[in-house]
Write a protein that binds this DNA or RNA. Structure first.
Lengths: 201, 201
DNA sequence: AATAGTACTGTAATTATATACAGCATATAG
DNA sequence: CTATATGCTGTATATAATTACAGTACTATT
């Protein structure tokens, strides 16, 4: 799917907000009026271009017959067990997906990760809980992060982060801190934890 | 809001599924065709009747200008502090509402309740967490319930439930069990806890 | 230098759609 | 007995909306 131009994106957003506000798509004339075009045909041609790029479908003959093609990025995947080696978001790790309900929790969540083990019980994170993970939010000292150490994915509190020493703390009295030397072991901070869900109580 | 007739409800459902399927409402002709009317005017008059009863709004002049009036029952309220005396779901207790995202968590949730205090930390329920509460699901011994004791709302584990003795346990070593005699103190089990949300981690 | 894409104006025809008016039949409430 | 609501057919028309055709201008790619 090719990229939209600035103007085309503007029109696509207009369509989306029209649907959001009124419950149905705008006409060519509506679009032209909103963007100051003097001819509805300007809108028509933009729509054709956007359709050609795959973002919408146009039903011929039907008034307001604009259908938004889902771009797939409004569903959040739930990640179960992470297969060793591959990326976290690989197809085989996805348990299911859930629609992004934007009013609830943070909208920075890129995926949910199902918690294994009891290493974080002291901060109220239990086995089978789902943790909302943001890939982009950069991890702070003291925050809970998803880390990958030598292909094993784990959730811990980030205590120290230096060139030759990274400390990850399990929030459970029975476990001790994990110290990693990034120049020896492979370490990736996959993301920051921003929310928590528990389905069964 | 008056009740719809069988036929009117049929038409309202048709409109809803048309929107669900295609993303915009049907025309009078679409409705007539779907229901076998020979005149689009039959649809028109039904729409006017449904509008009169408040279930839809019709934008005059606009094609497919049918707006569904939300009946309010697809939003879940978030309850903050519960004012003493009144019902939990009273207007003044509602912090905000969130749309029901039916694929996520249990769809039995009637409302979310914001947790105050640390009496349930040992089962991973922390202050400011949101607990999904089902009013209808009948509470079992050993499950976590929302109880109202003498107009104070609290979240505890239900340990014992007899005619003259009800035991509620705080899941925190620093607190002791609460014993209530329902014939002396006013006790209502408001609901069962079925899910948990934590917004800040 | 030619081609294709972007970004419009302007006109006009055809079709889609809303909507008014005239009926007819049945049921229910005052 | 008479409104009033429901539930349609059938016709007609104004207007809403799609969409084709003819241009103009700029930019990027081959």
């Amino acid at each position: 799917m090719k990229n939209l131009t600035k103007r085309q994106e503007e029109i696509l957003n207009l369509i989306k907000s029209h649907i959001q506000d009124l419950g149905f798509p705008p006409t060519r004339a509506d679009i032209a009026k909103s963007l100051g075009f003097k001819s509805p045909n300007a809108a028509e041609q933009h729509l054709r271009a956007i359709e050609k790029k795959g973002f919408i479908s146009i039903l011929s003959g039907a008034s307001r017959g604009i259908i938004l093609n889902d771009t797939g990025n409004d569903d959040i995947p739930i990640i179960g067990l992470v297969a060793a080696g591959g990326p976290i978001l690989a197809e085989e790790n996805i348990e299911k997906t859930i629609p992004r309900s934007n009013n609830l929790l943070s909208n920075e969540i890129d995926y949910y990760l199902r918690v294994k083990g009891d290493s974080m019980v002291d901060v109220g994170i239990f086995e089978e809980d789902l943790i909302g993970v943001s890939k982009t939010l950069n991890p702070k000292i003291g925050s809970i992060v998803v880390a990958r150490i030598n292909n094993e994915v784990t959730v811990k509190t980030l205590i120290e982060f230096n060139q030759n020493k990274v400390t990850l703390r399990p929030e459970n009295k029975n476990y001790t801190d994990i110290n990693v030397n990034p120049s020896i072991d492979e370490l990736v901070i996959e993301g920051s934890c921003v929310a928590l869900l528990r389905e069964s109580l």
